[in-house]
Design a binder for these strands. Structure first.
Length: 618
RNA sequence: GCCGGCGUAGCUCAGCGGUAGAGCAGCUGUUUCGUAAACAGCAGGUCCUCGGUUCGAAUCCGAGCGUCGGCUCCA
């Protein structure tokens, strides 16, 4: 689903899941506790049945997998002799429409377990038989007899199903089949690959149209498309999964980075930089070599094995331990814009949102246990401040101790209490995800909704009680002269800069807020004789730190404006005889608003001021 | 990694067995213009790579690479 945005924890921050970035299950939506079933689910699931009916008509020997309702629609998995084509989808749609028009009732029936098994076996449906067997096994393992299996029939089609359904096929609203994709049976790579057909269905035509429009709009805003159009970055097969940053993209990057640095300097962070190429013994000590090896790029040199670092944290401990630390030094806040490499599987790479090489606005904060609550609250403030620059509303999810966790349970309990208090004090909008923390840290994940209502997991704050402190034996000398264990907080607020920029491009459809736009203003001389004055004006503005360009090409003014509009430049400053005579300029905004002429100095002042304000709405 | 689609000029795409096309962008010239496209000309391509079929391959077949949609939702 284009709209069911996937969480990519591996790039969001540090150590998302247990066992070092094991892929996390569940869409962000689900994680946010939105599992309350959609009222449209019965209809969506019913549509899946109707689709299966249609597929069976066209391919009588099709084997059926499962066909649940999902956000926005439904899918059904099939095993077929040949690959489906777009043409097949239209034919399936037609048959579905016929079934809806026929208004078949959905009729529930049930039969004893054995009979159900035989029923589907006779119909050549091994996947259904497997499900029935599994249900029986679960029951027997629980010391119960296998329950009767239930089926639903509409028209000629009978499917193993627990329901619920709508009354009859006529209740199924406007629908459309979207795509066909490969999907492993039960999501397991050692099982057969089935063909999955995705469809969407809604109560009204308007809702369906809106959904399809949003898909179109998402395509239009796709950062991979806009990245080329706006000349921000490109990808090349010589380094799959890694962006080449063009001058404009790099300018955007640096603007975001310096904004974050400014916050960090204000908050007492100290920036560090650690090597990218690191001997494997470090990764053996951190545990990555055992648990994360397949995601690390290895480098052999002079008989030694190194790896490109997939994260910064272990190395930051070397700086921590470079001398004895006093309780007076804590909190010790090390930030690092380190370049990381993770060997993501080739099939999962995607634009800036799933890459092999990226940079995090990473930091590790070492605190005494008594400082934890205050630090968390401050970090929540950082998140709010940074997201405010883009008009994004962060939502928080607090993930607590999983069953399998390392470390002192009392410490866990205390840390969780402090995190919860900090969230409450900060009046944060949060949900609790019980037992969803990592095995060494409770954490706070941060989500936003973008302009299209899509949910993205962004930042993460992890309160590491065990990993860095224990494994790397971090200590400080406390007030009484004894050695004590600090707590390490991993935090990344943008997450990966690559991914963050990708999301920003889509959120703003390329029209970045004035303060971070790669080109903030274009001076447009009307005729050649205005070029010199245009360069003069640009120099005045540029001297105030505003990113301005002059379009002194031989095009007509209209064309220069069009070009600037396409590039989503916030301000166009048209300069002709009238303006030059009065040393003024009349700004035109990319929204098409024609502003009053102002003097050059005043204009430069205003732009410089707006640039510093970092408002999301300019 | 696996399944399926796609890979032709910088970009968007047409051509789908007889030796390559359009629009935009680029370059040159003319134009010097008042708020979203001035006009004309020119130039531009190992048709992703390698191998095969064929008298002949961008076009058909195979492999590789890249890219896109997916591979969690458990009757």
């Amino acid at each position: 689903m284009a709209d069911a945005v996937k969480v990519n924890p591996a790039e969001v921050g540090e150590e998302p899941a247990d066992e070092f970035h094991a892929p996390e299950r569940g869409s962000a939506d689900e994680l946010m506790g939105a599992e309350i079933g959609d009222p449209l689910d019965p209809m969506r699931h019913s549509a899946a049945h109707v689709m299966a009916e249609a597929v069976l008509e066209l391919f009588p020997d099709a084997r059926l997998g499962i066909g649940p309702a999902i956000e926005g629609g439904f899918y059904y998995d099939f095993e077929l002799r040949r690959a489906l084509t777009p043409d097949d989808l239209s034919r399936i749609e037609e048959r579905m429409a016929a079934s809806v028009a026929a208004d078949h009732r959905f009729v529930r029936d049930e039969m004893p377990h054995e009979e159900g098994r035989r029923f589907f076996e006779e119909r050549g449906q091994p996947y259904k038989v497997e499900i029935i067997d599994d249900l029986a096994k679960v029951a027997r393992d629980g010391g119960r007899e296998p329950a009767r299996v239930s089926t639903f029939q509409h028209g000629p089609f009978i499917d193993l199903c627990r329901g619920p359904h709508v009354e009859s096929t006529a209740r199924i609203g406007p629908f459309k089949l979207l795509t066909v994709a490969g999907a492993y049976w039960r999501g397991r790579e050692d099982r057969p690959m089935l063909q999955r057909i995705y469809g969407t269905v809604w109560s009204t035509q308007e809702e369906l149209d809106l959904y399809l429009w949003r898909r179109q709009e998402a395509k239009r805003r796709d950062h991979r498309r806009l990245g080329v159009q706006l000349d921000l970055f490109s990808f090349h097969d010589v380094s799959p999964g890694s962006a080449f940053w063009h001058p404009k993209g790099q300018r955007l990057w640096r603007t975001l980075e310096s904004a974050m640095r400014e916050v960090q300097e204000r908050r007492g962070y100290q920036e560090i930089s650690t090597p990218i190429l690191v001997h494997r013994k470090l990764w053996q000590q951190s545990g990555h070599w055992d648990l994360y090896a397949e995601n690390m790029f290895r480098v052999e040199a002079e008989g030694q094995t190194f790896s490109l670092k997939p994260m910064n944290c272990p190395e930051s401990t070397y700086i921590y331990r470079s001398r004895v630390r006093s309780y007076r030094e804590l909190p010790l806040r090390f930030n690092e814009y380190g370049r990381l490499h993770r060997n993501e599987r080739s099939g999962t790479l995607s634009g800036l949102t799933r890459v092999r090489q990226f940079v995090q606005d990473d930091a590790h904060v070492y605190v005494r246990p008594d400082q934890l609550g205050e630090e968390i609250e401050a970090l929540l403030g950082e998140v709010r401040e940074a997201y405010g620059w883009f008009g994004l509303e962060p939502r928080f999810a607090f993930a607590t101790k999983p069953d399998k966790a390392l470390g002192d349970p009392a410490l866990w309990e205390k840390a969780e209490g402090l995190i919860r208090e900090a969230l409450d004090r900060a009046r944060a909008n949060y949900v609790v995800k019980p037992k969803d923390g990592t095995f060494y840290a409770p954490k706070i994940d941060i989500y936003i909704d973008d302009a299209l209502g899509r949910e993205w997991q962004m930042a993460t704050i992890q309160v590491d009680l065990v990993m860095l402190p224990e494994r790397f034996d971090l200590t400080y000398i406390d007030e009484s002269g004894r050695s004590a264990r600090p707590i390490a907080i991993h935090r990344a607020i943008y997450g990966s800069l690559e991914r963050f920029i990708g999301i920003l491009v889509e959120h703003f459809a390329g029209a970045f807020p004035f303060w971070c736009a790669p080109v903030q203003a274009v001076v447009i001389p009307i005729a050649d004789r205005h070029n010199e004055a245009a360069r003069e004006l640009a120099a005045v503005i540029r001297s105030r730190g505003v990113r301005v360009e002059v379009d002194d090409s031989s095009s007509r003014m209209q064309n220069k404006i069009r070009l600037a509009q396409e590039q989503k430049v916030p301000y166009m400053l048209v300069l002709g005889d009238r303006e030059i005579g009065a040393r003024t300029a009349a700004p035109r905004t990319r929204a098409g608003e024609q502003q009053e002429p102002v003097s050059w100095d005043e204009l430069a002042d205003r732009l410089a001021r707006e640039s510093v304000e970092r408002r999301p709405d300019r």
